[in-house]
């Protein structure tokens, strides 16, 4: 199936995902352009992780379809997507060097030089095994691996959730500074105030339904609010 929209990196049509009786995503339609940083925002259990996992190819949808750069999810789209899950997934026994070797082997777009520079800047020791690193350092390690690829679509699930504010700033600077203008970054996060400054667009996801998709500039100009304020208003308990 080929996309009609050559500018879209991600097209989602009538996407539904059920976990038994629970509806995680309900008839989601979505088109994301190339070259944008987009926030996927919503409260816990709204379906953010489910959406990212379906696009990454880790979950099978109940119905609907997803196209990445015009291709259905499969081996081809996995070489275009750089996915950062919300959990640590690197094997405990691997050293930092082993992880770099792994990514060099499987991803033609992996920039080893860039990865080494970022690891050095974040003080991640190259000879340590994953089990010897703190949870925060492992998360940094994963982010470095993911952002060192020249991918077309980055899916980042809570990339700054587990790190201190200083590192958070560095990570966000890294995200902005290292991605290609043609690439799109979809960031899922609760820390809206921190990421707001880097977002071009945002999506509000509530109970598996996209309730708003707009540009952050438009929110500021038309509503006179920050994205954080709008989020608190929309999702007030």
């Amino acid at each position: 199936m080929q996309s009609n929209n050559t500018q879209a990196i991600l097209e989602v049509r009538a996407l539904t995902k059920r976990y038994g009786p629970t509806l995680a995503l309900s008839n989601v339609d979505l088109t994301l352009p190339k070259g944008k940083i987009i926030g996927l925002l919503g409260p816990n259990g709204s379906g953010k992780t489910t959406l990212l996992k379906i696009v990454a190819g880790l979950l099978t949808s109940t119905s609907g379809f997803v196209l990445v750069d015009g291709q259905p999810i499969g081996e081809g789209t996995k070489s275009l997507i750089s996915y950062l899950p919300e959990r640590t997934y690197l094997p405990d026994w691997m050293t930092v060097e082993d992880c770099l070797d792994y990514f060099v082997d499987f991803y033609a777009d992996f920039d080893l030089q860039r990865a080494r520079e970022m690891l050095s800047r974040l003080n991640v020791p190259a000879n340590k095994r994953m089990k010897q690193l703190s949870k925060g350092t492992r998360e940094k390690m994963q982010l470095v691996l993911v952002m060192s690829r020249r991918a077309k679509l980055y899916l980042l699930d809570e990339p700054i959730g587990g790190v201190d504010p200083a590192t958070r700033d560095y990570i966000l600077d890294t995200i902005i500074g290292n991605y290609d203008n043609e690439a799109t970054i979809l960031i899922s996060t609760h820390l809206i105030a921190d990421v707001e400054k880097v977002l071009d667009e945002f999506l509000f996801l509530k109970e598996g339904v996209i309730t708003m998709h707009d540009t952050t500039d438009n929110v500021r100009e038309t509503q006179g609010k920050s994205l954080d304020e709008l989020f608190r208003e929309v999702f007030r308990c």
Binding site: L58, E75, K78, R87, L90, F106
Partner: peptide, 17 residues
């Protein structure tokens, strides 16, 4: 571990068949 554990996130996002 490679297929059903957390490492599955690494295994199944590789661009391999």
């Amino acid at each position: 571990r490679s297929f059903l554990g957390d490492e599955g996130y690494l295994t199944f996002t590789l661009p391999v068949s």
